[in-house]
Design a protein around this nucleic acid. Structure first.
Length: 202
DNA sequence: CTGACGATTCACT
DNA sequence: GTGAATCGTCAGC
């Protein structure tokens, strides 16, 4: 059981980090409660040269500033005015890479997740998809800029092993606006896991 | 200041 | 398969 060190987030390529995050534990603290899940789906956004990234073309605004900051922070983006999307900032300052967490296998605090989402029992939709998992974990704007080394957010290696042959790769979801970059295979997922979103799950 | 729009989800046809 | 919900952000005026 080991909290990932800050070096994990800047000493290897972002695409590699996105793949390595599969199987890691994500823990959140909100309203004094801890909830956690195992990451089963991620997407990489490679900053200034990636048309799907908010930082494409080196666009630096109040919103994107977090991505230009230190590795290992959370970048949280309000999508469609409804959904908080949870990212991990990677690479050194001024290189605005990020990884979107898109799917979690629930592990701890499931009762709290059910309360937050208003569900009566666990089903695949509890933490499948970036909007759903943020709701279940209680992710809000207050988590923007928080470190994944704690105390509100943690990424933990509990030595859960994801075999290479269980890892799938595909284009990212919902980024058709990014033209040719929409086809880049920057999405990673654990094959067959029910908490992976989208159609391509194996 | 204004308008268009989105890294989504869910209910409904 | 289609459309509504819903609001912060950003480019352009």
């Amino acid at each position: 059981m080991n909290v990932l060190p800050v070096s994990f987030f800047h000493t290897q390529p972002t695409l590699h980090i996105a793949k390595m995050l599969l199987g890691k534990l994500l823990i959140s603290q909100a309203d004094g409660k801890y909830t956690s899940g195992r990451i089963v789906e991620t997407e990489a956004y490679l900053g200034i040269e990636d048309k799907a990234s908010h930082a494409y073309g080196n666009r630096r605004t109040l919103r994107t500033e977090v991505m230009y900051g230190q590795a290992g922070q959370a970048y949280i983006y309000l999508c469609y005015g409804l959904h908080q999307l949870l990212n991990v900032v990677t690479q050194c300052s001024d290189i605005p890479h990020a990884i979107l967490i898109r799917g979690l296998d629930p592990v701890g605090g499931i009762e709290e997740m059910l309360m937050r989402t208003g569900k009566k029992q666990v089903d695949d939709s509890l933490t499948r998809g970036p909007g759903n998992l943020s709701k279940a974990l209680g992710i809000k704007q207050m988590h923007n800029g928080q470190s994944y080394l704690g105390p509100l957010l943690y990424l933990v290696d509990d030595y859960y092993n994801v075999p290479e042959k269980k890892i799938g790769q595909s284009p990212r979801i919902g980024v058709s606006y990014a033209q040719e970059d929409a086809l880049l295979p920057y999405r990673f997922f654990i094959k067959g896991n029910p908490f992976v979103s989208g159609k391509i799950r194996k």
